[in-house]
Design a protein around this nucleic acid. Structure first.
Lengths: 376, 376
DNA sequence: CTCACAATTGTGAACGCTAACAGCATCCGC
DNA sequence: GCGGATGCTGTTAGCGTTCACAATTGTGAG
């Protein structure tokens, strides 16, 4: 022991000077620990990595030395030799909306649990050029995989097909051959919402959609149309919004003049807020005259006037699924997670078709307590 | 050239086999580039790091080789020898609210512009234990500094005083001796809001505050009280909310019964939504009977019923300030940025005191197009 | 006691890069 | 035409780990 190898000599820490945990003192290395514990650096490494064939007494001695020197292994040195960084890249585009932000947060936590670090690249822009250069930036950091939380189709397309050298897991509502994907089933969620309106007796159900470049929105349009079609109901042209309450308000004004219509499926809660505002302003009460369903269940939805019936998405699980997907493609684990179906949350913005009869009058039942948050 | 040094020999790439850019081919190293360009690895390193004293012709040859081999330098190897990772840690606690999320996003962009990577650790919990272990986790990744976006006082306190070995820059509204700080001036913002109400003639101005553990909220309380005090107006006990629309609603019901009160300064926009809802429900019109001012200017605020007068905070600049702060403490740059003062955004939820006298009850006038809309 | 064999520990040699210095032309002034 | 600057380029030595072995110690059967 105390082998006079070139390292120990090179370090040249005078035995007396070492103790002071003063400022400039360079962080301890595996050799410092080895010397203090009276073992070779390799034995320390074995302890660090929990390898077998270390006598318990030795292990204890090493652990004691580690603690005493406040030693932490260098991730750089480790990455250099193992060729694994245990680091993932996360790209989030667009404004920090509730959905993407939540997904990112829970992905982050899941990654931490799996002992991976996450280098995040958030960006407001969503053009192909900056997206690609951001992805390449992450690759240059030697991330082992990239997770892309993409709302806009363009963001997904930007990374489609290009060979980055690392796997990409997209959190997106549309499929692309070239990358793996996890998602929440927007189509099914929309059918849930529209199905609810149909059950309430509505026949003329309009739709305020998200922007055409939004994949979630497109799936919701599909679901809306499919559910209507299946019940032999007409699907009038959707009104295309931009997710903002303002665009909901604008379309709400238009809708207010459509006297046939008795229900609106709005593609997110913010726009639903605008729609309700416009309808009420035009004297069409919600849910008295018109039923409105939103999508997302943002925290505020419960406190709209009236409290909003909406479709809740589980972003917690989505974030975890993203991490599960990463582990899957990295081969450390199982297969790609299946999409989850959102839940319908019935509140007070929907009511049975009744009082104001559009074309086919019917009597209103007074069932369904309005408030009762998560009822149904 | 072509020196038969141990590296080139050790690499043992058969000259014939090298060309295939097949799958398993290990990424090119600086030696591969050197060989192809017919120079030493050190010259390649000089080109990579933009050092002087490289003949333009040589530089071009090296750059050509780099491109041809699609070579990217290994950050791990670089970090190992330079002892600099160019990586920062970012801790964001609590739910992904608008403010913290925006700040994080713009910090992220600013870091990228400064050629730093950011390892993000988002966490819902805010207890000292998990916060500290998260910070230590980041330190173990050899981040050069940690940025803490802290809303709750506890989050700040958790990292206060403990020696992490790297500087901490807190984005927080209260000061702690042990760390650097950037912030938006909540106190000044609150005075702006209350000053506006006073100018409109209000004398009984109540306050719905954030939770007591929220530093922003505490500063806003201070600002509210100070502004009132300076005008010799009474500051009744604030109603303590929890930022949610729900708590705003609850306090709104209480406030509705206070017939003295003609104005409320609410500590964030979400609670203001709840307050307005409750007031309207109780027959006290906003702004006809009561003026309401919020804080934050979330995107939805403009579409509340009525559109909300509020205080806008510039989270874009705050995020950039955080990065500027990091550069400052890292010594690469100038000094800690000064706090910024928010802007008052006047919309339709505030009006001059007039119709309804504070102590003398009166009938509500129907002035002010208070958009019947969302009011119930 | 001795020897084979397992358990434990130690010894170089990478990993891919930068830092420090050494070497070699080239150029300038006298 | 010679000495010394002044580019430019090359050589060697680490940075702190893990990997692949080699060496040593311990154990149980004969």
């Amino acid at each position: 022991m105390m082998a006079g190898n070139e390292r120990a000599a090179g370090a040249g820490q005078g035995a007396g000077r070492r103790v002071s945990d003063d400022e400039k003192a360079r962080a301890a290395t595996i050799f410092d620990v080895a010397r203090l514990a009276g073992v070779s650096h390799q034995t320390v490494s074995r302890v660090l990595n929990d390898l077998p064939n270390v006598r318990p007494a030795t292990r204890a001695r090493v652990e004691q030395a580690i603690k005493q020197l406040r030693y932490v292994p260098s991730p750089a040195a480790r990455a250099l030799v193992t060729r694994r960084t245990r680091t993932l890249g996360l790209i989030v585009t667009g404004a920090p909306d509730y959905g993407p932000s939540s997904t990112a947060l829970h992905f982050n936590e899941a990654a931490r649990d799996a002992r991976y670090s996450v280098i995040t690249a958030s960006m407001l822009e969503t053009d192909a050029a900056s997206l690609r250069s951001t992805a390449e930036l992450l690759v240059r950091q030697n991330v082992e995989a990239i997770v892309l939380i993409a709302a806009q189709r363009a963001a997904l397309d930007a990374l489609d097909g290009i060979e980055l050298g690392v796997p990409v897991v997209a959190v997106a509502s549309e499929d692309r051959g070239s990358m793996h994907r996890v998602w929440l089933d927007q189509y099914a969620g929309a059918r849930l919402a529209v199905g609810h309106l149909i059950e309430l007796g509505h026949r003329e159900i309009r739709h305020v959609s998200g922007p055409t470049n939004a994949m979630d929105g497109a799936e919701r349009v599909r679901g809306w149309a499919a559910e209507l079609g299946e019940h032999g109901l007409p699907a009038r042209e959707p009104l295309v919004g931009d997710w903002s309450p303002g665009s909901g308000y604008v379309h709400g004004r238009t809708l207010a003049e459509d006297r046939e219509m008795t229900a609106v499926f709005v593609s997110n809660d913010q726009m639903a807020l605008g729609v309700i505002h416009a309808l009420a302003e035009a004297g069409r009460s919600v849910p008295g005259d018109v039923s409105v369903v939103g999508f997302d269940d943002i925290p505020e939805a419960e406190f709209f006037a009236p409290p909003l019936t909406t479709v809740r998405q589980d972003f917690v699980e989505l974030g975890r699924d993203a991490m599960a997907g990463v582990l899957a493609v990295l081969g450390d684990d199982d297969r790609m997670p299946a999409p989850r179906v959102p839940d319908l949350i019935v509140r007070a913005s929907t009511a049975p078709l009744g009082d104001a009869a559009p074309s086919a009058p019917s009597s209103a039942s007074s069932k369904s307590g309005s408030r009762a948050a998560v009822s149904s």
